[in-house]
Design a protein around this nucleic acid. Structure first.
Lengths: 346, 346
DNA sequence: TTGTACGCGTTATCAA
DNA sequence: TTGATAACGCGTACAA
């Protein structure tokens, strides 16, 4: 990095003091038009640009936010990131992207780094387990907002979706279609969203006196594929599957294709976390949609409201609604005549 | 932001000078074990963490990189971002995420901001047109690496893929399958990648004496759908389509479905920019794969090599190979017996 | 209207 | 082995 152009350089060039240059640059009052012109000319000639690092140090705040997610290549997080980036930029903040891979240690390292760089706020999709370390950061002034999952016992603003009732609605739908054996293709029980969705699943089954069939070792597509296979190779296999998220859904589809099973004729399928191509697959996929962009946008807004003092009250918890996107994979189309009233459920 | 714990606080607490604390914190020599212990105890007790902003100002560099892409919700960019984030983190850099939406003005605003924050390097997927402004930033010390598209006339390290020959191979494949009328579903001609792929398309057609059928107004899925419809409603419609990227491919599929045309029986299809679900669609999609993660990883490495002085030579231009992923949508499977030798082309 | 002097938290220089 | 002091670039308080 070459030596940069500073206020001093401009001041010398324009024949004024650095304070005058500072005034001009920041558009303050009390500068005569003449000097202003002269200073601006020097600014242009020398190519002066303010050093935000110095401004931050002086006390203005770093005007940077962090977004900590598991994996940006997952469209769920990418969609959140898109909204957060947009809101940050509009508010004049820069956004630091951090990926934890669901690893608390990596998360903690990242948060430590963010704190040292004096980021003002953090949008966090907390990895499973142990967020006590965050208490210290919050006490030291870092503003945190949790998205997708709560971070328990810390009283931070939180944006969630209706995991439980969204799943419940999806399962009611399958049950009303006549399914009695419905498998759950899940992921680590440590994940809040998985627990909640599992609870919705179990509630729906319990109410109908059905037996749960649960596979939880499906944190990524390949393992979801294996989990699905285990379910389908049961002595009495399920006639329908509920997949806990987009990755699990892809894995399940993989296996269904491998085994040559037709959807929904042989096995019906509903998944959580809708994605763009669900409408282009064959069959089209019935999915529980969560408003990913809105989650990001809202989380960012809540964070910014804290930062600029627009909100100073108690921690907020927003729970956004989900939506059951009825398409073909649940068997709806097949039964649409005889059960049309039921298909309008959600 | 509360008042933070500084070197002074630690120094006072430990009864030493700030320089001594600084030495301990940075693991320098010339500190007696006794004082070191005392200082470390104070550091822990007070919860001191170094202020990287101050370090940056002092001259250590900000240890931050920028990644400027069009849209993080596009899996192509998300995949690049994943790799870049990973490389940055490993090198001890933080990554600022910037989305330009292909808008040069927004790009310029972002770069200006990045410069003011004194980011050390920038990984850039340049928006179309006018990058003269970058010259100034580079001269001022910003290190730039271009990914996916070159930024002309500026002599920066660049990572590209074989757009032209990749497309050429795809079209040869279609032509050898007997297609004589092949449509091109493209995007703005201003985009380097589009121009290159179009050139590959035209070359293949020219060599076989075929007539190009080109639609360029397909920058997103909906407009790609419309463009595809225009092609297919021609008096003599194409029997095959080449789609310039993943978005164009999705748009084309949309229209094919709407019109009730079968792929590949009625219309064959090959697209550029493979994506995960191409294998799960029906039919599975024959696509030109580009090594997105490697593009990001390599770009990041080249940038880091510049920053740490490992490389100081002439601007480098790396062109990564693409790969034709033969699946069903090109009609390959149908003809695989009679043309198996041709199918091994790529 | 303009300028001087100080502080932000750190590292670097040089002396003790 | 230690410490006082000067940068780094900027904004603020206070004078002029």
């Amino acid at each position: 990095m070459k030596r940069q152009v500073t206020l001093h350089d401009v001041a010398r060039d324009a024949g004024v003091s650095i304070k005058t240059v500072s005034r001009v640059v920041n558009g303050e009052e009390h500068v005569s038009p003449g000097t202003r012109e002269r200073v601006l000319a020097s600014v242009r000639r020398l190519g002066y640009r303010p050093n935000e690092v110095a401004r931050s140090l002086k006390g203005g705040g770093s005007r940077m936010l962090g977004l900590l997610i598991a994996d940006i290549s997952n469209p769920f997080y990418a969609s959140i990131a898109k909204a957060v980036e947009d809101e940050s930029r509009q508010a004049g903040y820069s956004l630091v992207l951090c990926a934890s891979s669901e690893d608390v240690d990596r998360e903690r390292e990242y948060v430590e780094m963010l704190f040292r760089r004096r980021l003002e706020g953090l949008l966090l999709v907390p990895a499973p387990n142990g967020h006590d370390y965050l208490r210290r950061e919050i006490q030291a002034g870092l503003v945190v907002v949790a998205i997708d999952r709560p971070v328990d016992g810390l009283g931070v603003d939180t944006v969630l979706v209706e995991n439980r009732s969204g799943t419940y609605a999806a399962l009611r739908h399958l049950i009303l279609h006549g399914h009695r054996r419905i498998g759950f293709v899940g992921a680590e029980h440590q994940l809040y969203t998985v627990r909640e969705r599992l609870a919705g699943y179990e509630q729906a089954l319990r109410e109908s006196g059905l037996e749960p069939m649960v596979e939880l070792d499906a944190p990524d597509a390949p393992r979801a594929a294996a989990a699905t296979r285990r379910l389908l190779e049961l002595p009495v296999p399920p006639t329908a599957l509920f997949c806990v998220n987009n990755l699990a859904t892809l894995g399940a589809l993989q296996t269904l294709r491998t085994l040559g099973l037709r959807v929904p004729e042989d096995v019906a399928l509903v998944g959580f976390d809708d994605f763009e191509l669900a409408e282009l697959l064959h069959p089209t996929l019935t999915m529980v949609r969560q408003p990913t962009e809105e989650m990001g946008r809202l989380g960012a807004r809540m964070l910014l409201e804290r930062l600029n003092g627009e909100y100073t009250g108690e921690p907020r918890r927003v729970v956004l609604p989900t939506q059951l996107m009825l398409r073909e994979s649940c068997g709806c189309r097949r039964n649409i005549d005889q059960e049309s009233e039921r298909c309008t459920l959600p």
